[in-house]
Design a protein around this nucleic acid. Structure first.
Length: 577
RNA sequence: GAAUCAGUAGCUCAGCUGGUAGAGCAACGCCCUUUUAAGGCGUGGGUCCUGGGUUCGAGCCCCAGCUGAUUCACCA
């Protein structure tokens, strides 16, 4: 890859540092006694603590003014200004640490350590007065550095922001360096997970780990990723859910288990879908879905409080209030509420007609349950902004849920919908092994009908149920979507450090040696690169006359006076086999 | 899979009716000991996504393609 002028320059600086006896990548620990956060919060209160400090960070801005300079370094929490005066960091005769190293060989993006004391400049900015400066890492690539300016009203305006989503997601490390809000979003995500974990731990449930590689995929309706184990010579699937394993643990006698799980679904990507995503699933013995609704309300309300100090969260244009209790609707009630149609007594044919009437797209593979779900998804879901429980789903689409205690054809299931999207899904778990086997068999029939998401039959899971699983309430919460809501982000990519991307288009490049092997003078390789010829294949596809012309022309343009033009015969030699 | 939009300097972007490729920041050189988008003077840096076409002449118009984003479709 051809290096830019700036990259070449930084490589030279790295070399010059080494020649000056400064290791640009030292191995010793650099002792840090404070952080930018600590200084900003506590310097005014207890200045005596900051008479001698040491901290480290990345150089993010620099204002050189002759024999003294101001710069800013950024650590994990924020930035602080540093004041570097020549005669302070170079007390002796040798001023090269300031004149050469600091002013010439360091760049924005380099990582340095400083020792000194904290003071306030006459413009009122808390600043590190540097006594000692240590190079900790030389950065070889220039950062896309935005500028932030505060106007008189204290509003921050950002110029030249690093905004291109592709670049931001592909080079998340750069995004995190230059866009502090991105770091904050991910901190909040982690806080959300901690809040839920603390809550569940507080209830006495056991956090567990279950297999990601599964011989059968189950527990949800989705297409899986398939892989192969060499030694066992068997097909394995990346889990689409961990439900069936957690239930096995309930059979095993734990009365509350949960897992934060990466699940994998081989389906489309969108701002709500990533092929791998995180769910927390929870199973509690001797409970039902009514009980689980209370738990969800409490857990999510608490998460909002932990993150924001209030139950109200601004999401786009909506203010969402997680304060308990949430609204509860049965699915049929919700559909009736939004469409004025009562579908509770309809058969499959009537449902099809209703779907057509409501302009809900359907196809022939859909059974009764799926039709109801489509009607609901189309007419109700987007309208549910405040957290709402939708309960009592059709049995056909919930093969792992227990049949409703009083309403035939339905199961004891709920989803919480928030901001028009499902954030969790829960049931009173089906624990009758005979019923469970029948439900799996119905799924097999659906599968034969063409439903690619129909579930497979897991004999071992049925065997476990046959030993007896206590009545159990189960829950799955989509962490990514909940994180989107809690951090007010419009897309799932914004709450995943490394969202799935198309492979980066990368042009293969032939080595210089390969060019030399074909008879190209080494000095002419940059000329060929400049002409866009970076592979032998490209070289071989060129026409000899044109290439000879181009090379001679480009050599002149690049002012390579000491380099001889190739003869036409030589150029023909490069191209021939 | 479809539609829309975009692709110009390291970054963010201008570029008129088709007429010599621009700005700010970043970089490089010089000056400057309390600046804060520091400042002053100077310099370098371009496959205008690619390939065709129209034209005396294309960053700009036309066609095809590539890449990406967004929306939709798909998706518990």
């Amino acid at each position: 890859m051809a290096l830019s002028e700036q990259e070449l320059h930084r490589r030279e600086e790295r070399q010059k540092l080494m020649e000056a006896g400064i290791n640009p990548y030292p191995s010793e620990t650099f002792e840090i006694t404070t952080t930018t956060e600590d200084i900003h919060q506590n310097f005014e209160k207890e200045p005596e603590r900051f008479e001698q400090v040491s901290l480290a960070g990345r150089l993010m801005r620099r204002r050189i003014m002759g024999k003294a300079s101001f710069a800013e370094i950024q650590d994990a929490a924020g930035r602080i200004q540093i004041y570097v005066a020549r005669d302070e960091i170079c007390p002796g005769e040798d001023k090269s640490l300031y004149n050469t190293v600091f002013k010439q060989l360091l760049d924005l993006g380099d990582i340095v350590g400083v020792n000194g004391f904290i003071f306030t400049t006459k413009t009122g900015e808390t600043t590190v007065h540097v006594k000692e400066l240590t190079v900790l890492t030389k950065s070889l690539r220039p950062l896309p550095l935005p500028k932030e300016v505060q106007d008189e009203e204290g509003n921050t305006k950002t110029y030249d922001a690093f905004t291109d989503p592709e670049q931001r997601y592909r080079q998340r490390y750069v995004d995190l360096i230059v866009n502090p809000k991105v770091r904050e979003t991910f901190r909040q995500r982690t806080k959300l997970v901690s809040s839920i974990r603390n809550f569940l731990d507080g209830q006495g449930y056991l956090e567990v780990e279950t297999p990601i590689l599964q011989p059968l995929y189950g527990g949800a309706a989705a297409r899986p990723f398939k892989t192969h184990h060499n030694t066992l010579d068997m097909t394995l699937y990346l889990r689409i859910a961990n439900e069936l394993y957690l239930k096995r643990l309930i059979v095993g006698g734990f009365d509350g288990v949960y897992e934060f799980a990466k699940d994998f679904r081989n389906e489309g990507m969108s701002r709500f879908h990533n092929p791998e995503f995180t769910q927390v699933e929870l199973y509690v013995a001797y409970k039902d879905y009514e009980w689980m609704m209370d738990l969800v309300e409490e857990m999510i309300e608490r998460a909002a409080l932990d993150l924001h100090g209030t139950t109200e969260v601004q999401v786009g244009e909506n203010t969402i209030n997680f304060q308990r209790p949430w609204k509860r609707f049965t699915m049929f009630e919700a559909i009736q509420h939004y469409t004025d149609i009562d579908i509770s007594e309809m058969d499959e044919t009537q449902l099809r007609e209703t779907a057509h009437q409501l302009n809900v797209p359907i196809d022939d593979t859909m059974g009764k349950g799926k039709l109801i779900d489509e009607i609901f998804g189309e007419t109700c879901e987007p309208k549910l902004i405040q957290p709402t429980f939708i309960t009592d789903y059709p049995v056909e689409m919930s093969p792992l849920a227990k049949k409703h205690r009083s309403k035939p054809g339905l199961v004891e299931r709920f989803e919480a919908i928030c901001n028009g999207k499902e954030i969790c899904n829960a049931f009173s778990e089906l624990n009758d092994p005979i019923d469970q086997r029948e439900r799996f068999e119905e799924q097999l029939t659906l599968g034969k009908r063409g439903d690619e998401e129909a579930m497979t039959l897991d004999e071992d899971f049925l065997r476990a149920l046959e030993y007896g699983m206590p009545p159990t309430a189960g829950l799955g919460v989509g962490i990514d979507r909940l994180a989107m809501i809690m951090t007010n982000q419009p897309s799932i990519q914004e709450v995943l450090f490394f969202p799935q991307m198309k492979p980066e288009a990368k042009q293969a490049e032939s080595s210089d040696q390969e060019f030399v092997d074909r008879g190209v003078q080494p000095e002419l390789i940059p000329v060929l690169h400049k002409l866009g010829i970076v592979t032998i294949t490209q070289l071989q596809e060129a026409s000899p006359n044109k290439l000879h012309n181009d090379v001679c022309g480009m050599r002149k343009k690049m002012k390579l006076k000491e380099v001889k033009n190739p003869t036409k015969e030589e150029v023909e030699g490069w191209i021939e086999d």
